[in-house]
Nucleic acid binder design. Structure first.
Length: 319
DNA sequence: AACACGGGGTA
DNA sequence: TACCCAGTGTT
């Protein structure tokens, strides 16, 4: 696949500088790679895909036990496709963003229906699956199938941004110029490109971290533009917004989902869910009394909660 | 381009 | 307390 950059004011490849960076990253990765289960030689494409979806915004430490239990229970796409969504959501537990769990099951069903139960290797085919975006499509193509792909997650963007451009942190949004630059540095050999991708991610996770980078342990120290410039501050600092959590609709949604995951009965009374969302207090006494009901309605809208429309209206359950 | 979307660990 | 984390889908 041709992924050449089209910028006219810069070369599209960086053979000398790029080769030195690649050697440094590959050498470091060979020495320091973590022994994660989805990297084991026997891990199949489905195992890799499941790990990548779980790792979307959830740290490795919390994903690992959930991934082991998940793969033991549903070792193939067909197994997950046949599961009850309520059990899928319970197994997802507290990994966060539970819509990912539903999309992962939709993804499994699409793989069964459209790809004979086999995880596709083509990046475009992967991108068409539910819950698979640009990052995950590239990651599965590379790590599950050994394909050459431009894998750009937050770690890779930070490492390349620092080493090549001297930026403390990547821009809030990924632009074409940044993607072209990453493509220009991707090794031509497929097997090498896979190790480059995973090596950059590992370097970003263990050494070139966002908060307190351990530059003394970095294999790219001598080549790093950010370090050479004296590690200037993040130029986008003023425009980044931290997401609120306490008192938000998201927190209330989480409480309702937690209640339903642990509820023994099939159906739960809406009143119980509203109280659960209000953290045990009377919803009417909240600063925003309508919040629990609004959160519950949004969960129903997302398909994470089902409302009984029959004779027992006012009762809810997991789908 | 901006938003909404969980939850917990760490400095 | 504030920030961060192997992003995705919608508006």
């Amino acid at each position: 696949m041709m992924t050449a950059a089209t910028a006219t004011d810069e070369p599209t490849t960086h053979p000398t500088e790029g080769a030195a960076l690649v050697d440094a990253v590959l050498g470091w990765y060979a020495e320091h790679a973590r022994d994660l289960p989805w990297r084991a030689p026997g891990a199949g494409a489905w195992a890799v895909l499941v790990s990548e979806v779980m790792l979307q915004q959830t740290p490795v430490a919390r994903v690992e036990p959930a991934w082991r239990a998940w793969m033991a229970r549903w070792p193939t796409p067909a197994d997950l496709a046949a599961a009850r969504p309520a059990e899928v959501l319970r197994a997802w537990d507290r990994l966060g963003y539970p819509r990912r769990a539903l999309r992962l099951q939709e993804c499994a069903r699409a793989i069964v229906a459209e790809h004979d139960g086999e995880v596709p290797a083509d990046e475009a085919a992967l991108l068409a699956l539910p819950g698979i975006g640009a990052y995950t499509a590239a990651a599965v193509a590379a790590f599950a199938h050994g394909r050459r792909a431009v894998v750009l997650d937050t770690n890779v963007r930070r490492v390349l941004g620092r080493a090549l451009e001297g930026r403390a942190l990547p821009a809030p949004s990924l632009g074409r110029a940044e993607r072209d630059r990453a493509a220009a540095y991707l090794p031509a050999d497929a097997a090498t490109s896979v190790r480059w991708n995973v090596g950059l991610m590992e370097l970003g996770a263990l050494v070139c971290t966002a908060r307190a980078p351990r530059c003394d342990a970095c294999p790219l120290l001598d080549a790093c533009a950010w370090h050479a410039a004296g590690k200037p501050a993040d130029e986008h600092a003023g425009r980044r917004r931290t997401q609120a959590w306490h008192g938000t609709d998201r927190q209330v949604r989480g409480r309702i989902m937690a209640h339903l995951r642990h509820h023994r009965q099939e159906w739960a009374a809406g009143e119980d869910l509203l109280v659960a969302g209000a953290d045990g207090a009377d919803p009417a006494a909240l600063p925003d009394p309508g919040q629990p009901a609004r959160a519950l309605a949004s969960l129903v809208g997302d398909g994470l909660v089902v409302a009984d429309t029959g004779a027992h209206a006012g009762r809810f359950r997991l789908p």
